[in-house]
Amino acid sequence: MRRPRVAPAPPGVNGRIILSFLVSAAGAIGFAVTYGLGGQTQWEGVCLAVAFAGLAIGLAIWGRRLVPVGGYVEEHEGFPPPPEEQAMVAAVLTAPDSPVRRRGLLAALGLALTALGVAALFPLRSLLPSDRTRPVRAREVTPWGPGVRLLNADGRPLRPGDIPAGSVVTVFPEGGADAGDAPAFAVRLRPERFTRPPSAGHLDGLVVYSLLCTHAGCPVRLYLKGTGRLLCPCHQSSFDLFADAQPVAGPAARRLPGLPIEADADGYLRATGGFTAPPGAGYWSRP
């Protein structure tokens, strides 16, 4: 039996392949040793990379130099198959006793399967929240409401004097600090600089707004002092605090919802109601 003869290994090729595989083995051993000595991410990575690169180079030389490359042809039967073949399949499928021909039974079967399929969709509803609140309602309800005190990030209730002029203080509702839609910020501004009165009112220039960007809900964390602008780090919407947190640049289109506040008998800040609008991104039924 004769085969297309493989060229005898050209000088040096075998050696290079063996060397590559040895390097690979050394890499693998290096990895094992590094791991055994306590592990070190960079060395582990380098050793594994060397191990695989050695394999790759060895195999690549082998594949290029010791076996025939190119020069073969395979026929393509082409599509479609010969008509006789197609006719024979069609004949089997449409034989007199073929299930495909019993239209009435098929219709009934189809009905049963459709019913099953639809019934199978019902359990999907279990994915909805277990407390059954309607999603739109959930969006409107936040932990804020009349009498809820304002806490700082450490959970301490705040007095008006705790908000220094010129800086933004993140505030949370007492009893709901973890809620995703709760974060707000308080900032003290000079009332005479208001170009538009805050919709939720102010307490000697102290205003509170939702921290969530009305574009896509990121916390609007960057305060550009002096300008009274607040910048969203996600897509750079900026809101003008002197103009009732109106968006002035970037992709946001709606104001930040405000929070009406007052000082209670003990001098602590508390909300007199919820946000003036649902906080965060817009949605279909947003009022």
């Binding site: 594994l48 990379a49 191990a51 690169a53 394999l55 790759a56 195999l59 690549a60 082998w62 594949g63």
Partner: peptide, 14 residues
């Protein structure tokens, strides 16, 4: 191709 493809796999992993 078996050799070359294995080599490629090893390259990707490396």
């Amino acid at each position: 191709y078996s050799l070359r493809s294995l080599a490629l796999l090893a390259w990707v992993l490396a």
